[in-house]
Write a protein that binds this DNA or RNA. Structure first.
Lengths: 282, 282
DNA sequence: TCGTACTTTTCACTGAGTGAAACTGCACTT
DNA sequence: AAGTGCAGTTTCACTCAGTGAAAAGTACGA
């Protein structure tokens, strides 16, 4: 890029940023509640001078990353969506997992979710829901907290100690921090330990409605956990312990299809009786 | 960006490109058959110097547009997928259309496709397929030709004269040009006229397998055609004329949900008897 | 040990990118 | 009809972010 131009630094953080990062910052301004933005908004939100924002937006639009509505506002373009559909952790896992998610859905007729971890949150990759199932809080492409959701707990449990420390110490980005000094760290650690050794997370919620979620880890070819699968049912409609084997079986089938070779031996015998999976009120 | 550096222009086209465009060019190198690329490949394919490509790739990776595998190769990242899921013409239409696609799928148990136009091709936004349905040629996120597919013909028929001229004159990007001098222009024009006034396209194929596709246009709030919906069935299993009302009804329901107010009046009476929809061998 | 291929760092040079200011066009008010 | 305000766009002199060849580092196989 070029210099900070003639003018003095307007914003303490922004001026030194490379062009590319500035352009990505522009892209990052789009969100579920801001799907269409005009120049002034983009400029204001990103902290870029209008002239600069305009130039970058033009390049992005020309390439197809953005599209322009008749009223002049910018929206995310199909070209970008198309490239993004090549994301292995996005559409990639989805393509492989979908048939199994469908099986699970056909059998239970409740919500089936697939997520991956991105930073300190989970991203919902796909969701199958009948119109008659309970209300859902999350949108495909949206983010979910790691601490309080079943998929989140699975991803967190298998995400490595580093991530857990990070999350238990600091805030988990958006959303309220757990407490002043890291309130329920010990509790969460215990939950995660249970999840990890049971191979499932069970989370009970009362908030949007009374539900139970059961989630299991999906392993990639390298052995690491690359995604998590869960099923969300109205509480007390189906006993959770009946769902556990279903969810685990589906997750294992998907893992196998991703090239994961399950560890041989007695894990089977160990895990099965240890049915007391992690749980957390609300 | 900065100058062409010390060296003389290496490639006649590339050197003058702005940084942002170069970065987008890098993104554009990913394709279905190239989902993971290493530095040398990216550098070679994009025509950028390795050092330059590396710097840009680092920025893209840092932001999350790309992710790096253990072996050093780059793949499209979840962050990009997440932003892209906000694309109105991508996941946007999908979200609204999905329930209707599902209905269509439940009733017929055959392939149901949803596409939008992007330049001179169609992009497949979603596909519902039972495992027992006929084989499919296209992948979600992939491109389909406008001339030879039912959805393509719908998008083309409603895409304006400019687009049609463009496509009939020149090549349609990838894929073989129709013929030396624009072979079957007249034929295609007639087909498109039929499609437009019938409100459906019917295409018969023999190639991967014998199938009939029936497609109908989806209108947006502004009245323009924003997407096309189609159903693909094995030939002679279901008579095409039985599918036409199903597909049209679904397309209209989706249009209404997108805020389209159907033109009042006798279109109904006109269109219905004009059942001879467009068709094309292979 | 050498060879090859890929990745990363270095560095002197320079034009691509910068942003304040001016201008245009539109909507709404006085 | 003249005035006000704001979003979008263009201009332009300045300069530092970006450049790419070359060199150094790394990994793997013969």
């Amino acid at each position: 890029m070029a210099g900070a131009g003639r003018g003095a630094p307007k914003d303490p953080d922004l001026p030194g940023q490379p062009v590319l990062v500035r352009a990505l910052t522009l892209l990052g301004q789009f969100s579920e509640q801001r799907r269409a933005l005009n120049l002034s908004e983009m400029s204001r939100l990103s902290g870029l001078a209008p002239a600069t924002a305009l130039r970058l937006l033009r390049h992005l639009t020309e390439w197809g990353a953005l599209e322009r509505l008749e009223d002049g506002r910018y929206v995310v373009g199909v070209r970008l969506w198309e490239i993004a559909s090549l994301s292995p952790r996005g559409h990639g896992v989805r393509e492989i997992a979908l048939p199994y998610l469908e099986d699970l859905y056909e059998v239970t007729r409740h919500h089936v979710l697939l997520s991956v971890r991105e930073g300190r949150e989970a991203v919902l990759i796909d969701r199958l829901s009948s119109r008659t199932a309970t209300e859902v809080a999350y949108r495909v492409g949206g983010r979910m907290p790691l601490r309080t959701t079943a998929v989140g707990q699975v991803l967190l449990a298998y995400g490595g100690a580093e991530l857990q420390d990070e999350l238990l110490a600091g805030g988990d980005g958006p959303g309220p921090a757990p407490g002043p000094g890291g309130a329920d760290s010990a509790g969460l650690r215990a939950v995660l330990a249970d999840v990890k050794q049971a191979g499932v997370a069970v989370v009970r919620r009362t908030h949007p409605s009374r539900t139970v979620s059961v989630a299991a880890p999906i392993h990639g070819a390298g052995g690491g956990v690359v995604a998590a699968l869960s099923i969300v049912v109205p509480d007390e409609e189906v006993p959770a312990h009946e769902l556990v084997p279903l969810v685990r079986a589906a997750a294992r089938a998907i893992s196998r299809n991703l090239g994961h070779r399950a560890k041989a031996s007695g894990a089977w015998r160990h895990v099965q009786p240890q049915d007391s999976s992690a749980s957390q009120g609300d």
